[in-house]
Design a protein around this nucleic acid. Structure first.
Length: 277
DNA sequence: GCCCAGGTATAAA
DNA sequence: TTTATACATGGG
């Protein structure tokens, strides 16, 4: 079980199972964390934070135990038993066993719904460094500045902007998609609580009414923005993985934690393209 | 310069 | 209903 130690710098967490900071923050699920060498610096729901890991010790700078319990524990999803999930997957196939061995430090962050929706709209046909830049520009130009960081701008603010206003963020053709998403969320046509209270197929269908949101982005929003761990985003790469290692199967074979399996498979296969030989 | 990026909308076939 | 192309921009 995890143990905590409060220091003058922040909070130290020891022996938290299946939590690897680089794996979790560099796996492409979030875009407001930067790798500063050993430390990671992030902005989450308007809070600035720094985190780093040394072996089984994780340090969260400037975080109190109280604040951890109130916010960060949930964000890092520490109440989900990833060791159990990983163990189940290991037994499925040799490939899954290897993927788990290498990637089981990934946790699915509980991110803000609106920020996630907007971020994955920006992610389409784009690369991660530029996605981060665009999101940063979006925040510094239109987000509220407080406690030394720019928060992610609200849907209400973005809903009132024109495509021209958004030229400064260099999002290209995605600008109109951001505005449409902002308007639909601001008007309540798309609502996080409603999406949470319905089945995933219905929720994905609703999300896809937003211009620029297709099946892939919608599944990413379900997984990362609404923490539905059964959501399984499929792109051309994952299609390749499934065709080769689970031919004829659908994501349902991974059960209610399919999204976690997808993360393990995606990142393992990216690190080992030779598995397709 | 050139290819491509964890896609999607739209126009053909 | 399936298959091709354009799309804005800039990272590597």
């Amino acid at each position: 079980m995890a143990e905590f130690l409060q220091t003058s710098d922040g909070l130290e967490i020891y022996d938290l199972n299946n939590f690897d900071i680089p794996q979790t923050l560099d796996c492409g699920q979030c875009f407001r964390w930067d790798n500063l060498g050993t430390r990671y610096k992030g902005i989450v729901s308007g809070r600035g934070i720094e985190a780093y890991q040394e072996g089984s010790k994780i340090s969260l700078l400037g975080v109190s135990r109280e604040e951890f319990e109130f916010f960060w524990a949930d964000y890092f999803d520490i109440y989900t038993d990833y060791s159990k999930i990983a163990k189940t997957f290991s037994g499925m196939s040799p490939l899954m066993s290897k993927a788990v061995g290498e990637c089981s430090g990934i946790r699915i962050l509980k991110q803000d719904f609106w920020e996630t929706l907007c971020s994955f709209i920006v992610s389409q046909n784009n690369n991660i460094p530029r996605i981060k830049k665009i999101i940063n520009l979006l925040c510094t130009n239109f987000g509220e500045y407080s406690n030394g960081v720019y928060a992610f701008p609200s849907p209400e603010v973005l809903a009132g902007l024109s495509e021209e206003d958004l030229l400064v963020i260099r999002a290209g053709f995605r600008a109109k998609y951001i505005i449409d998403a902002a308007q639909k969320v601001a008007l309540g046509i798309v609502n996080a609580d409603d999406l949470r209270n319905t089945n995933i197929d219905e929720a994905v269908f609703t999300l896809m009414k937003i211009k620029g949101v297709g099946i892939k982005v919608a599944q990413c929003v379900m997984l990362y923005g609404l923490h539905d761990l059964s959501a399984f985003p499929v792109d051309v790469w994952m299609k390749r993985v499934m065709d080769k290692f689970f031919p004829g199967s659908t994501p349902e074979i991974f059960g209610r934690y399919a999204g976690v399996a997808q993360q393990y498979l995606y990142h393992y296969s990216r690190n080992h393209p030779e598995i397709f030989d």
